[in-house]
Nucleic acid binder design. Structure first.
Lengths: 155, 155
DNA sequence: CCAAAATAAGACCAAATTAGTCGTTTTAAG
DNA sequence: CTTAAAACGACTAATTTGGTCTTATTTTGG
């Protein structure tokens, strides 16, 4: 099953939470509780987001995280790549392309390049701001328990 | 790093080899040697392809594998899904959607659905026949050692 | 100005998935 | 009928991924 890592999945969810209230600074404990992601794992992800420049960290008492860039400037690809590294479907597409010892017998690289770009575009076509735009506010710790758009998908 | 599994990568390469000579029946040993894929691993993949109906297996002496479907009817997605299972970026998109205990606090499912479809389309847009069409014949065990299209990508 | 509490950051450990190997069964040719 | 080649399925090993813990930093309250 082709799927993205749990970390990447979590990361998008955390970013959505933060983006919903762009003015406030949210601590990792609060975010972890709301998203039901284990606190240490959430911390780890948030750290990666800071390193990628997508979030700003505020240390000390009442510290936490806030958006480093406007939500309209962050694509899903940005988040995923911050956690999982570059989108690179086959080994021969990256820096270490020469590592592929089948390179001489493989005539499919140019096609793979095309496919990789297509996937990257697909992922990059959705912005964080779009991800949250139709979502009701479930700010703080009070969370809506029956969103209309979700019901539509389940049935 | 988002990448598809080695098996999936291998699978595409094996299918390309077979599709280049659609008339003949190729044994796993021959295919493994040509693609430089470890024989047991190649066998395993070929078996999966048979199970998915993409290849037909011929047992016994002088047996081997041949295309089960015309190369113009096989997409990259077909091959990848035969090896790795369905393309399903997030856990909440599959059969077991209800397993996601954060479903009530997560408003992003409909967006994920869109993204997943986009990725699937990107992968499905390339057919096996396209994958091989501009590739010089490196039939049998003689393999071309410097393909023009590859040089273009390396530099 | 000092100390304590809360928070982020980094290093470490465990579990699960994935890749690869081996042995067995099946099948067709001689 | 015998023999040998090849597919098939079960098992073992390794890499990646996910989760936990400890350390260092900063700010607020006394």
């Amino acid at each position: 099953m082709i799927k993205l890592s749990n970390l990447a999945d979590y990361a998008v969810e955390l970013m959505c939470c933060i983006a919903l209230k762009p003015e406030s600074i949210r601590g990792s404990a609060s975010l972890a509780k709301q998203t039901k992601i284990p606190l240490p794992t959430a911390s780890k992800i948030l750290g990666l987001m800071v390193k990628a420049g997508l979030l700003i960290s505020h240390r000390g008492l009442n510290g936490g995280f806030s958006l480093g860039v406007n939500a309209t400037k962050i694509s899903i690809t940005d988040i995923i790549e911050a956690v999982d590294g570059p989108v690179q479907l086959t080994n021969c597409l990256g820096e270490d392309a020469a590592d592929c010892d089948r390179i001489s017998s493989c005539g499919t690289r140019s096609q793979w390049y095309r496919i990789n770009e297509a996937v990257k575009d697909a992922l990059g076509s959705v912005l964080l701001s779009q991800m949250i735009e139709s979502v009701p506010d479930f700010i703080g710790d009070g969370m809506a328990d029956d969103l209309p758009l979700i019901g539509k998908l389940i049935n």
